[in-house]
């Protein structure tokens, strides 16, 4: 235990030397709350569990790498599925809790846990057969660990190795959200009788992580970006993609909402889960982008959009997002075009 304590101290010293934003990212995971929330997110945890334990034929006698292992729940699923050995890696000091948990469950000889940055540590195996990771952030990419997973893939994944999950898709649709937009954005027009419009601009630039009701959807969802984890690169995480939203009914569009689906295609019976408004709640909720205009749309019309996403230059865990929209109609009074900048930080 004394040695463990020194490990913890060394890890904390290491964390102290990092840039503040990085430190915040890793330290925020040290609290129980976030792990409790993630473990209690059944859509997430059960999907991973099923993808792993229902595919013993894939995991049996394999060497598995768990990137960002947290409390090591996925590592333990892999052991349960028959893995020869699992390496769990996490920068956060939660990994010392993970060590205790692994020990309490009698898996210490099957799971090696390493505290550190993937890019800086040395694995006890030159290659791994399977990479498992729950790397997704809000809006898929915010504070995501995908770049670390891709690094691990390029460095450690054996030829014909597998990645769980291996596909991620970002969806966008337009929603009617007048009441809530008024509450979130219109609020600043009159705060106890005062004009607070300076804060309104900030509010418009902050995407809102919240749950959206499926009945709010005015357009069909559109799959904007699909990431194949076997082939994509970090360059693919900066993108500018045009897409079209077709309107299902006559209504107003106040915002675009984004979510993502996750696929484990390597499974015997493919497993997929969605974080969209049409299905069960997840801790990722959805991400709402309020636009400046209110679009008055008719059934069958299309809104032409473009989504641009780039990691922020100063803090690459923050995202700079730009959404362009254009509603072309014969009716000049409804014609609308605009562009909004957002920052997730």
């Amino acid at each position: 235990m004394a040695a463990e304590k020194m490990d913890v101290e060394a890890a904390e010293a290491k964390l102290k030397n990092m840039a503040h934003s990085e430190q915040h990212y890793f330290n925020s995971y040290n609290h129980h709350g976030i792990h409790e929330e993630m473990l209690k997110d059944e859509v997430r945890t059960k999907s991973y569990m099923n993808a792993i334990v229902q595919n013993k034929h894939l995991f049996k006698d394999k060497v598995v790498l768990d990137v960002g292992c947290g409390t090591a729940i996925l590592s333990m699923f892999a052991v349960r599925a028959g893995a020869k050995h699992v390496i769990g890696v996490d920068m956060s000091t939660i990994i010392f809790k993970a060590k205790e948990i692994v020990q309490a469950n009698g898996m210490s000889d099957k799971i090696t846990l390493i505290q550190g940055k993937m890019e800086e540590i040395e694995l006890p195996f030159p290659k791994v057969d399977i990479i498992i990771s729950e790397w997704m952030g809000y809006f898929l990419l915010y504070e995501s660990m995908l770049d670390t997973v891709l690094y691990a893939r390029d460095k450690y994944l054996a030829k014909d190795g597998m990645i769980f999950p291996d596909k991620a898709t970002i969806f966008v649709c337009g929603i009617e959200d007048g009441e809530y937009k008024d509450e979130k954005i219109g609020f600043w027009d009159n705060v106890y009788g005062f004009d607070y419009t300076p804060l309104k601009e900030t509010a418009l630039a902050e995407p809102l992580v919240d749950t959206v009701e499926v009945k709010a959807a005015v357009t069909d969802p559109c799959a904007v970006l699909t990431l194949d984890l076997y082939t994509c690169t970090t360059a693919d995480l900066s993108f500018s993609i045009p897409f079209k939203l077709s309107c299902r009914r006559d209504d107003f569009v106040h915002a675009l909402v984004a979510w993502f689906d996750i696929d484990f295609t390597a499974c015997h019976k493919p497993i997929r889960f969605s974080t969209g408004p049409h299905t069960k709640y997840t801790h990722w909720k959805q991400t709402v982008f309020y636009i400046k205009d209110v679009l008055t749309v008719q059934q069958g019309e299309e809104v032409v959009c473009n989504l641009e996403v780039r990691p922020n230059d100063k803090n690459r865990r923050d995202l700079d997002i730009k959404i362009d929209y254009l509603l072309e109609t014969q009716d000049v009074t409804r014609k609308a075009q605009g562009s909004s900048q957002y920052k997730m930080c």
Binding site: H32, H35, E36, L39, T45, E100, I101, N105
Partner: peptide, 19 residues
Amino acid sequence: GFWHDVYGFDMHRAMARGI
């Protein structure tokens, strides 16, 4: 109590300590 049985694993000692 949640930490006693997390998907069949016991996390109580590690995660509930200090709670």
